[in-house]
Design a protein around this nucleic acid. Structure first.
Lengths: 200, 200
DNA sequence: GTGTCCTTTGACCGGTTGGTCAAAAGGTTG
DNA sequence: CAACCTTTTGACCAACCGGTCAAAGGACAC
């Protein structure tokens, strides 16, 4: 809508700062002052751009839902089944590597009961998942993919890939300081896993 | 130590209440009043048994670390490799079903940077994991298990099983109201997955 | 330059937070 | 009963919380 240049840039700065803070402290654990400090703004100035703390959080979550579902949307029923799944796995893992804050924001929200994003799970996520699960089921039925529960297959892709963002601290603590980037190993492991799981 | 009968029971009640609240709101999102109300105690009375909010949280986390690692400790290098892994998977999944609050407490802590439990990851978790990873590597080397990265294999077991506790809301939203217990399906899926992944 | 609108700020507010304290209530032992 | 220790409580506190507001400061078109 009718936005000033200043508004556009400041709102972007605030979202960036808020993502930082919300993703590491959760909604309740975050204070407006923290966000303001991170955005290098005074608190009233921040509240000039967003009406409330909750508005910032909601804004972030809504933006996120879209980008979060993008890789799944691109799963193409006309493509090669195994390649499509592996591409999806690789993209989700890349998102964990490149957007760990977004992953943690989402994880925090779900973990704490999804009070704010709950409805979108039923109205946005479920229909998309049901659709793609049907595609996968057809692939399996046609003998192009080894049979298993499509919904749980998708759950397993989410959990395995997001784990490397959400539990990053634990992964690094276990692998030790000599491994400074777990993602190449992780990708190799996940490709192996889903290939063995699904190839006929 | 020298504990009264009243002290023992009250401390147990407080821990139970605190687990409820901490696991659904995170550390910062939890108030002492909330815990006190859940424990049916007045706030000063609660603080008579624990010196601070943080003390309760730390106490919970320390207790948790032990029970959390139990299933992994029982992985027996003299047993049948695949059965041992599958037993471990089933036990971890059962813990997600029966102790979802503990799982979420742990997830909250790791997700938010593991500021309180961080050291224990290196001193308690890593040595145990390294030891068991060595056992698994030997099984693979002996041709009794299909080869893959043992550390990432353990990560995958954790992420897949804990997902059903930590992301319970999302799982139920996606599966819809007609599925009232996702765990039987989940167990079947995970057994299939690790069997295909590991059996020679 | 001047008027207008957008942006920023310091001071402030009512409510909540984690935590203290002195005193009261309760239990146990002689 | 009396002395002693454990447990419970209401009143209270300083710090912090999310959010408001009037007024000052800038940007920009004319």
């Amino acid at each position: 809508m009718g936005q000033t240049r200043i508004q556009r840039t400041k709102i972007a700065v605030i979202c960036e700062a808020a993502l930082d803070v919300f993703s590491t402290h959760g909604y309740r654990g975050t204070t407006v002052d923290q966000i303001a400090r991170a955005a290098e703004l005074s608190k009233p100035n921040l509240l000039y751009y967003f009406p409330s703390k909750e508005a910032i959080h909601t804004h972030l979550l809504n933006q996120l839902m879209d980008t979060w579902l993008d890789p799944l949307r691109e799963l193409d029923h006309t493509g090669d089944p195994l390649s499509e799944i592996l591409t999806y796995v690789r993209r989700k893992l890349a998102m964990s590597r490149d957007m760990p804050r977004e992953s943690r924001l989402f994880a925090n929200e779900i973990l704490q009961g999804a009070e704010r994003i709950g409805p979108a799970l039923s109205t946005e996520l479920k229909p998309l998942v049901d659709d793609k699960a049907r595609v996968i089921a057809e692939w399996m039925h046609a003998g192009r993919l080894r049979a298993s529960d499509p919904h749980h297959l998708l759950f397993s892709i989410w959990s395995l890939t997001q784990h490397y963002a959400d539990f990053d601290v634990q992964v690094r603590a276990v692998l030790g300081p000599e491994v400074d980037d777990p993602f190449p190993e992780a990708e190799a492991y996940l490709v192996t896993m889903f290939t063995r799981m699904l190839s006929v």
